[in-house]
Design a protein around this nucleic acid. Structure first.
Lengths: 216, 216
DNA sequence: TTTGTAACTAAACACATGGTTAGTTGGCGC
DNA sequence: GCGCCAACTAACCATGTGTTTAGTTACAAA
């Protein structure tokens, strides 16, 4: 794609280029279907450089996943510090996740591929980091329930809805964009942050305690 | 997996076995990463039988997708005929989808893999059939809004939340099940239909018109 | 300017892939 | 019991794969 006229040597830039191209291709075609030749083609480097910098194709994959996970968690952690009323924290959390996916747009696809594959390529540390997201949801729900704003629900089910919708949205976004630019999309193509806002707010409304008719 | 002691000859059973094994493997590994050798291994048949019955690997893939899509749509179409108040139609629709995914358990994985792959293997007709699901959501929302039960929202965003959550739930289910049986799942592992019920109801609550404080 | 080494390439490797082909065989109709 | 053909297999082919290796080159330090 961005094939560079490469005469200069720069380890950091080459490493970065391999990760960028790898992320894009792994997310589009999956781990197995992405060839090192394709990555080399995209970067203008030789495919032997993958082994040179990352040891193997799997090593490159894991490095990309690690980077994506930490980018998402940065956004979420910043968000988690802000104090807000419970029913506003869900939209804020959703927005933080959406921004994280914006910073690591290939992560959701790679995560899903990893889940589907059965044989986890993702490093256990990365998986454990990701699981911290559930703690955020759980804390928000618990706080809201204690305050009487939310009814009592299984926080894990709520978390599945939130993450599931956001991940699915991200994964299918290229498809919608392609359809749209071909003029064949017969419905809306929401902006990621708007969609996150929408789902966060809808969930918050859906969780409202029955006993409080008009809160806020 | 279910390698049969195969001495008898049975066209229908062989065809079926190829589709079953293909569905399982395509959903796990994606189209490109699934080899005909693996499918042959699983069925105890020779890989030439894929060409014999389906013309090619792509032909097998499309046959499986077509079957899955029609199984899901059967459930949804039956459901769509039942008349209910709008806020009950959303949980019912979600349940119908969940039952459809139960009947075609590998479909969500294959769909996601297909979306991710970039080069769509799915037949356009199958994609068009799938799109009918959105019409169901749209009709439910429209009816509800007209009746004043729902507030005005973008039906496509609602649809994305519903489908996204259900699909994500399905494709991560094997992971949860594996964790659970290993005793390493620190949260709930909901039943698919219960989860569908939950999300349908939560969305219906989340869509409730602001002007009607205590409906039902 | 020389030199050491990190950054990089070309080529070869062993192996797996999807598809094809030529041939074999089980079982049903007669 | 026999012949026929659908059902099935083994082997091969051309191509593409991830990794390794042996060698080349840019560049910074001396």
């Amino acid at each position: 794609m961005a094939r560079k006229a490469r005469q200069i040597r720069n380890a950091a830039a080459s490493r970065e280029a391999l990760m960028e191209a790898g992320a894009r291709l792994f997310a589009r075609k999956g781990f197995a279907a992405t060839s090192l030749d394709a990555i080399a083609e995209d970067t203008g480097l030789n495919k032997a450089m993958v082994a040179y910098y990352f040891g193997s194709k799997t090593g490159l994959y894991q490095a990309i996943l690690d980077q994506g996970v930490s980018r998402v968690l940065e956004r979420v952690d910043v968000e988690a510090l802000e104090a807000r009323p419970p029913d506003l924290r869900l939209p804020a959390f959703a927005r933080a996740l959406a921004r994280g996916f914006e910073a690591a747009p290939y992560l959701p696809g790679m995560l899903v591929q990893d889940y589907l594959s059965g044989e986890q390529q993702m490093r256990p540390e990365a998986a454990a980091s990701l699981a911290r997201n559930f703690e955020v949801t759980r804390a928000i729900i618990e706080r809201g329930t204690m305050a009487g704003v939310f009814r009592a629900v299984d926080p894990h089910q709520v978390h599945l809805v939130l993450i599931g919708a956001l991940v699915f949205f991200r994964i299918t976004k290229p498809f919608r964009d392609k359809m749209q630019s071909a003029g064949r999309l017969p419905y809306s193509n929401p902006d990621p942050e708007d969609f996150a806002e929408f789902i966060g707010e809808m969930i918050a409304r859906g969780l409202k305690s029955d006993s409080t008719p008009e809160p806020h």
